[in-house]
Amino acid sequence: MKKHKSLHSVALAVAAFAGSVGMAAAAELPKSAEVKDTGKLVIANTLEYAPFEFIDEKGEQVGINIELAQETAKMLGAELEVTRIPFPSMIPGLAAGRFKIAWETFAATEDRLKQVDFVMFIKSGIVASTTPDKAPSFQGENNLCGKRLGVIGGAVSDFIADRLNEECKTKGLPELTKSVFPEGKDIIQAVLSDRIDARLDDATASGYFEVTSKGQLVVVPGLYDVAPLGIAVPKGDKDTAEMLRAALEEMIKNGTYETIMSKYGMTSAMIEEAYVVDSADKIRK
């Protein structure tokens, strides 16, 4: 009986410690006036762009952005409220003061920076993916030289393939062979049937297919045409921007960020530090 009491005491102590750590995190993170006043973290989101945000088969809101926002709300000791808004209406809505946070994956263009600021938390780019048995042959520098690649005609990957081929030729390495397809599904079938070696496509689509297909294709090392992406906040709203930056930075440090990104096959899109961009010269490539 004495032993059981001791174990019970330890369990209570651990629970109390965990609770105190959670309360401390909420107390230490800066909060915007809106979160302080309402106790809510309100975000605008489309809820229709997997793997970042979507409604699953159970009718629940899921995805990278949703789960990062949920963790942020938890650390702030706030309730998350998601307002569904079409993507084209988000920056105008922020500029008009209708809401404070558009939690999407925005590229920080000069035109957008005239109206809003950004908190960067992820990066986008082009990656190659292949079958697991071929993945070991895609290691090291210039790992696409000599390979047969499939791209969607006119997409960024189409032009990236041409640029990479020029680099292969300049370095005296075997040239890559580019095959153009109308749709991503056609490229996937070509890789699976060994007509080409790899698919060259957006990191988001490729990473998510790796997860949903249970590894039929896997992303290999290398990220091309890299661009940081971020959450949009009203221009000059330093309190909201710093609140989000601090929360994301804490998740990067404690491993929550990597756990969520890994869940959706997006580790290639991770960045090492969350940061605020309020002018084009602060964008980190």
Rank of each mutant, 00 (worst) to 15 (best):
Asp37Met: 12
Asp37Gly: 11
Thr38Lys: 07
Thr38Cys: 05
Gly39Ala: 04
Gly39Asn: 09
Gly39His: 05
Gly39Lys: 06
Lys40Val: 13
Lys40Tyr: 11
Lys40Gln: 15
Lys40Met: 13
Leu41Gly: 08
Leu41Arg: 08
Val42Pro: 00
Val42Phe: 04
Val42Gly: 02
Val42Thr: 10
Ala44Gly: 10
Ala44Gln: 08
Ala44Cys: 06
Asn45Thr: 03
Thr46Ile: 10
Thr46Leu: 09
Thr46Phe: 02
Thr46Ala: 11
Leu47Asp: 03
Leu47Gln: 12
Leu47Met: 15
Glu48Met: 14
Glu48Pro: 05
Glu48His: 11
Glu48Tyr: 12
Glu48Val: 12
Glu48Thr: 11
Glu48Phe: 10
Glu48Cys: 13
Glu48Asp: 14
Tyr49Gln: 13
Tyr49Asn: 14
Ala50Pro: 13
Ala50Trp: 01
Ala50Ser: 12
Ala50Gly: 01
Pro51Phe: 08
Pro51Val: 06
Pro51Met: 01
Pro51Asn: 05
Pro51Ala: 05
Phe52Met: 12
Phe52Asn: 13
Glu53Asn: 15
Glu53Tyr: 06
Phe54Glu: 05
Phe54Gly: 00
Phe54Val: 03
Phe54Trp: 11
Ile55Cys: 01
Ile55Pro: 02
Ile55Phe: 00
Ile55Leu: 10
Ile55Ser: 04
Ile55His: 00
Asp56Arg: 08
Asp56Trp: 04
Glu57Lys: 14
Glu57Ser: 14
Glu57Cys: 05
Glu57Leu: 12
Lys58Tyr: 14
Lys58Gly: 11
Lys58Asp: 15
Gly59Gln: 11
Gly59Arg: 04
Gly59His: 09
Glu60His: 08
Glu60Asn: 14
Glu60Gly: 08
Glu60Ser: 11
Glu60Phe: 06
Glu60Leu: 12
Gln61Glu: 15
Gln61Gly: 10
Gln61Ser: 14
Val62Cys: 09
Val62Phe: 01
Gly63Ser: 02
Gly63Lys: 00
Ile64His: 08
Ile64Thr: 11
Ile64Trp: 04
Ile64Asp: 07
Asn65Trp: 04
Asn65Arg: 08
Asn65His: 06
Ile66Tyr: 03
Ile66Glu: 07
Ile66Gln: 07
Ile66Phe: 01
Ile66Cys: 07
Ile66His: 04
Ile66Ala: 06
Glu67Ala: 03
Glu67Tyr: 01
Glu67Asp: 12
Leu68Met: 08
Leu68Val: 02
Leu68Thr: 01
Ala69Gly: 03
Ala69Glu: 03
Ala69Arg: 02
Ala69Val: 04
Ala69Ser: 13
Gln70Gly: 04
Gln70Trp: 02
Gln70Lys: 14
Gln70Ser: 11
Gln70Phe: 00
Glu71Asp: 13
Glu71Thr: 13
Thr72Ala: 13
Thr72His: 03
Thr72Pro: 02
